[in-house]
Design a protein around this nucleic acid. Structure first.
Ligand code: MN
Ligand code: MN
Ligand code: ZN
Ligand code: ZN
Lengths: 150, 150
DNA sequence: CCACAAATGCAACAGTGTTGCATTTGCAGG
DNA sequence: CCTGCAAATGCAACACTGTTGCATTTGTGG
């Protein structure tokens, strides 16, 4: 069963895209759906390997780059570099929930893991400084990469 | 005049390399000298473009990668990814002092401010994860940029 | 000085991301 | 429903960053 309309909590990706003022294409809908369903930021390579939706042809490599850039340009996705130097993308709305916990960034595979711990309270800032974001990142090797390296 | 011996504050790069237990080669000395003289972390491309020291041939591209990796492996250099996804290297001594305190990164001017506070202890990690580095960064506007924006 | 492991130079390759251009498609307006 | 056109796509070719294999050279302990 395919949902045909929006709910307050989960507007359809196609509606978000239309509201952003760009054309609604199959590629953009599929990519934004994937970003919104993902639990971690996804790299281009990971998204290229996504199972092609029923009957849909795989998205062209270059088109995927351009779809991702367009989603970033219209504010629906965020782009950040991982520890290996590869860009990772996330749905813009997903950022809020990740502000509440700490992340582990694997220097081996670039993966981002959400930890249960919440970030510690920020220290006092010098006069006039305005805090916008607290980033408490742990870096190292995840279980998979650590096993390979040992 | 070429210094032939170390001082307590500035040991020769060749002595640091020897003490690290690896062979002292022209490439390693030149690269470590460059890293120690640099005021910001340098990328591979930037170091490849360094003026070749008097009468010295330019370092081979692949050798430069391997020299950088060897300096990182023996603890004399640090490797981190920049915002474009390119690796940058710095002399270890230059960063060691920054490991003991928290940083504020201004999203307005890009400035990095060293705060007095020390980073909080890391939370427990999932089984098999290996912690290498803790990064507690605060992001926002510094006093100068905040005044301009208001 | 010698032997030998470590380091180098070179060629080829892999992964990530970009550009140019011809073709297709979303969609606004009739 | 058409139709036109800007926007988006697919494909080939390219640029940049980094790695691997292998023959040759070099640093260093003895
Ligand atoms: Mn998270
Ligand atoms: Mn500092
Ligand atoms: Zn990993
Ligand atoms: Zn600032």
């Amino acid at each position: 069963m395919v949902r045909a309309s929006a709910t307050a909590e989960e507007p359809l990706s196609s509606e978000l895209i239309r509201a952003a003022g760009v054309k609604v294409t199959r590629g953009r809908v599929r990519v934004l759906d994937a970003l919104r369903a993902a639990r971690q930021p996804l790299s281009h390579a990971e998204m290229e390997a996504l199972p092609a939706g029923a009957g849909d042809a795989a998205i062209d490599r270059v088109t995927l780059y351009r779809v991702l850039d367009s989603l970033v340009a219209c504010g629906l996705a965020l782009k950040a570099v991982d520890t290996r130097g590869v860009f990772r993308f996330s749905a813009a709305g997903a950022q809020r929930q990740h502000a509440k916990h700490v992340h582990f960034r694997c220097t081996g595979c670039g993966g981002v893991f959400c930890l249960k711990a919440e970030p510690p309270p920020p220290p006092r800032l010098p006069r006039g400084f305005r805090l916008q974001q607290v980033e408490f990142d742990l870096r190292g090797l995840c279980a998979g990469c650590g096993a390979l390296a040992s």
